[in-house]
């Protein structure tokens, strides 16, 4: 198990981020923190993808300066797109949270459920 930390360290870290992100989304009663948890989960996936493209001794994928080996550019492109889409998702989610707060006067999941039952 320990040898994984010296050969697969980034994969282990991204799996830990999956776990932490899932815990925050499920366990935190606060809606804003749930969205932060979703972002942590996303970053875990980004880290996983970018790590798959890495090659030992590879240069950043900028050609024409004499390097021979490069890291794979394709995961980088996919993750660039994913980061921007992730921010759009966060913006819409936060807008919905603000409207929920306007309607219920609370960001606490349990309080919102109680208000719904009372209605």
């Amino acid at each position: 198990m320990i040898d994984l930390l010296t050969t697969h360290y980034n994969y282990v870290a991204s799996i830990l981020l999956f776990g932490i992100g899932l815990y925050v989304v499920m366990g935190s009663p606060n809606l804003v923190k749930k969205i932060i948890g979703m972002n942590i989960f996303q970053v875990g996936i980004f880290l996983f993808f970018v790590t798959t493209g890495y090659v030992d001794g590879g240069a950043p994928p900028v050609v024409g300066h004499g390097e021979e080996t490069f890291v794979s550019p394709l995961p980088h492109v996919l993750i660039l797109t994913a980061i921007v889409v992730g921010v759009s998702l966060t913006a819409v989610a936060l807008a919905l949270v603000i409207r929920i707060y306007d309607g219920y006067g609370s960001l606490d999941e349990d309080v919102i459920k109680e208000v719904q039952v009372d209605d």
């Binding site: 980034n10 972002n39 970053v43 980004f46 970018v50 790590t51 493209g53 890495y54 590879g58 240069a59 950043p60 994928p61 890291v71 995961p75 980088h76 993750i79 660039l80 980061i83 921007v84 992730g86 921010v87």
Partner: peptide, 17 residues
Amino acid sequence: YILLRAPDVALTEAAVG
């Protein structure tokens, strides 16, 4: 990301993330 030789992703993550 910079250690992984992905400067574009690192810049985007720092600016956007």
